[in-house]
């Protein structure tokens, strides 16, 4: 605790470099999220929570950094998920990357889930350009598995706004994805 009590430079509140050292662990959470999928929105959130609690216990993070941690975690999880799906897709479809030919299990899976994720990602990139806040809400909700309350806290918005923003953006995305 001593370290925390020293007078900090407000600039040190920018935590991204620190967070990024936890990227590998977030990657595990992202994988768990994909595995749990529609069965359980909550389980991933719980993993993020547990991870966070562990960070707090280890003295590596302060409780009030929770909101920022959430938005960072969502962004990281999106990157990881999309990145791995792309590699996987490339491997399966014999794309630009080398084809491994051994991924039998993957070919048994319905591709629609993967396609949906990649399409949402692509649509989000465009939504970011025209309405960055809605895009962030979608990112935290869809990729990060965060609750509306958490999103509202992290973005400093009212819960009503988050709910409505999610509702509208979801309609737009649903329309775009057919």
């Amino acid at each position: 605790m001593e370290a925390v009590r020293r007078a900090p430079d407000p600039a040190a509140w920018d935590l991204n470099p620190f967070f990024s050292s936890f990227y590998p662990q977030l990657r595990s959470i992202a994988r768990a999220r994909l595995r749990a999928g529609r069965d359980s929105l909550l389980d991933t959130t719980s993993l993020v929570h547990e991870f966070y609690i562990r960070l707090v216990e280890s003295g590596n993070i302060r409780a009030e950094e929770w909101p920022r941690f959430l938005s960072y975690a969502s962004r990281a999880m999106r990157n990881i998920i999309v990145d791995s799906l792309r590699r996987r897709g490339a491997a399966r479809h014999g794309g630009d990357l080398r084809q491994t030919g051994t991924n039998q299990a993957a070919s048994h899976l319905p591709a629609s889930g993967e396609e949906e994720i990649l399409a949402v990602h692509q649509a989000l990139e465009q939504l970011e350009a025209i309405d960055s806040r809605s895009a962030q809400i979608v990112e935290m909700r869809y990729f990060g598995g965060m609750t509306e309350t958490e999103i509202a806290t992290a973005l400093g918005l009212t819960e009503r706004t988050v709910r409505r923003g999610w509702q509208k953006a979801r309609l737009l995305l649903a329309q775009a994805l057919g």
């Binding site: 999928g37 991924n103 993957a106 899976l109």
Partner: peptide, 20 residues
């Protein structure tokens, strides 16, 4: 879109060979 779709148990980041 309420939650992300499930991608299956064998999901691995590096596209390792997976057990059926």
């Amino acid at each position: 879109l309420d939650t992300i779709p499930k991608i299956g148990d064998e999901f691995t980041v590096n596209g390792d060979a997976d057990r059926a």
